[in-house]
Amino acid sequence: MIQTTQLSKKYGPVEVLHIDTLEIPTGQSFGLVGNNGAGKTTFFNILLDLVRPTTGSITNHEIQVNTSEDWKNFTGSFIDESFLIGYLTPEEYFEFIGDLRGMNKADVDAFVAKFEEFFNGEIIGRKKYLRDLSKGNQKKVGIIAAMMGNPKLIILDEPFANLDPTTQIRLKKIIKDLAENREITVLISSHDLTHVTEVCERIVVLEKGNVVKDIQTSAETLQELESYFAV
C-alpha cells in the first residue's frame, strides 16, 4: 500500500505537484497519465526519495520514504537511462543488481532466462556495453532489472516509449502477469493511452501537478481519456 498525504513540490514559486491524498492498495496495477510537465516523474522521484517533497510525505508499505531506507529492499524501479551503468554489459549489470538484491549468479541467470523472448536475442551474449545499445534495448534491460529480487512494488516511468511494437506487446503481457500476482503493486506512467488502459486496473490523470481524474478501468475508459485529452 502506497499512501500519499498532503504532498506538494515547489520549485521556487512554481508548484509542480500537489496531491492531497492518494492511496494505492497493494496488488493494484496503477497507471499515471498526463501531459508533459504534469508531475508524473516528479511523483515517482519523490516516491523513490530522489527528490524531497516541499510538504507532505509518501509512505511505501508503512515506511515513510524520506526517513527510512528500508523500502529499497522491496522496491524495484526504472525511471530513465541514467539508471543504467553504461560501461557494463547487460549480463554484468544484471549480476550487479542481483548482487545488491541478494541473488547469486545462478538465481540471476535463471531469472534473466525467463525473459529470453522479451530480449529477442538482442541483449544477452552480444558482447556490447550498455552505452552502445540502442535506446529501446537499453530500456529492456532497465525494465527487467527493476523486476529483480522479488520486489513488492515496481515503478516504471514511460516503459513503452522507444520500444518496438513486438516488444510493447510482450511488455504488456509481462506487466499483466505481474498484476495477476496480488502481492505485487505495479506503478507505470505512460503517454500512450491505449497501452495504459490495457494493463492498468486504475488510472489517475495528472494535470499541472493535480489529480484531475481517478478512474477504475472499464471498457469506456479509453474513450473517456481520449475525449479528456482532445482539447
Binding site: 541514467s82 539508471f83 551503468i85 553504461g86
Partner: peptide
C-alpha cells in the same frame, strides 16, 4: 554520477 539515481534507489547502504 551518471547512474547515481539508480544507486540511490537500490538497497545499498
Amino acid at each position: 554520477s551518471s547512474y547515481y539515481k539508480m544507486l540511490m534507489s537500490q538497497n545499498i547502504k
